[in-house]
């Protein structure tokens, strides 16, 4: 218990100390590229709370959430089809591995030329790029479902729908979740990249614009916000994952002890 408390204090204390150090060392900074943290926070408040909250922050977040949700649904769905239908597997496997080899951000220019600079382009970019990690993890997860579990499902004559929803999906759950976590990061990166490359709205666009107009404090404020969002998104993901996969977390913990 005491050890747990110490670890927790370390986890919270270290970043706190670093921020404090940043504050102190930057306080009298005259370097244009490293403005005082106080000034950055001032700009943070002025920019994001609440002037651009609706127009830019919410816009970015909406793109992230919608794109990521689509990527998950399509990724898991396609993963099932690819893993369970031999034809689809042979047809799609090489293609999937080729496409996932392309850095996600590199896809954005293609979509800009194909679809333009609108929200659709950003959504399509996020969805497509974020789909692959989930898709590949789903395929792997379903292919590694224990043969005994498949035999059990057959012997007890589970219907096809039951096999998919009650056996394959939960059995592949831990792997799918790992894929989804990578997808979340990819979605986040592509969300920013798509705004930086072809937009005047959104956190990414604002941050790039600030950098180009030498408003360094605004740029730092943007980066700070991105960090907070990324951290928060991952935190939310972990909480949900640990709830949904409580059986997995529990059995792993028991196996270790």
């Amino acid at each position: 218990m005491n050890r747990k408390l110490t670890n927790w204090a370390l986890g919270v204390g270290t970043p706190f100390l670093l921020v404090a150090a940043w504050w102190m060392f930057s306080e009298n900074s005259t370097n244009t590229f490293f403005p005082p943290l106080g000034m950055i926070l001032e700009r943070f408040q002025a920019l994001w709370l609440f002037e651009h909250f609706e127009s830019d922050v919410m816009l970015s977040l909406r793109n992230l959430v919608v794109g990521y949700a689509l990527a998950t649904v399509i990724g898991v769905g396609l993963g099932f089809v690819t893993a369970l239908m031999p034809v689809a597997r042979w047809a799609l496997d090489p293609l999937i591995h080729f496409l996932r080899g392309i850095p996600p951000v590199a896809l954005v220019p293609i979509f800009i030329s194909l679809i333009g600079f609108g929200i659709e382009m950003r959504l399509v970019s996020i969805t497509l790029a974020a789909m692959f990690p989930t898709l590949i993890a789903t395929v792997d997860g379903i292919r590694s479902v224990d043969s005994t579990l498949k035999d059990v499902s057959s012997v007890y004559r589970l219907t096809r729908a039951e096999k998919l929803a009650q056996v394959y999906l939960p059995a592949a759950g831990p792997q799918i979740a790992s894929g989804m976590q990578v997808s979340l990061q990819v979605a986040f990166v592509v969300m920013i990249a798509s705004e930086m490359l072809g937009s005047s709205q959104g956190i990414g666009a604002m941050t790039l614009l600030a950098q180009q107009s030498f408003m360094t404090s605004d740029m730092w404020a943007g980066i700070l916000l991105l960090g907070v969002i990324g951290f928060g998104a991952n935190l939310v993901f972990e909480v949900i994952k640990n709830k949904v996969l409580a059986w997995y977390v529990g059995s792993k913990r028991l196996a270790r002890s």
Binding site: D146, T148, L149, D151, V152, V155, Y156, R157, Q166, V167, P170, A171, G173, W247, Y248, S251
Partner: peptide
Amino acid sequence: AEMALVFQDYSRSLMPWL
């Protein structure tokens, strides 16, 4: 339909999520 099978490897034949 009238048959059930108990597998040798109980640790793999039960659904750990249920």
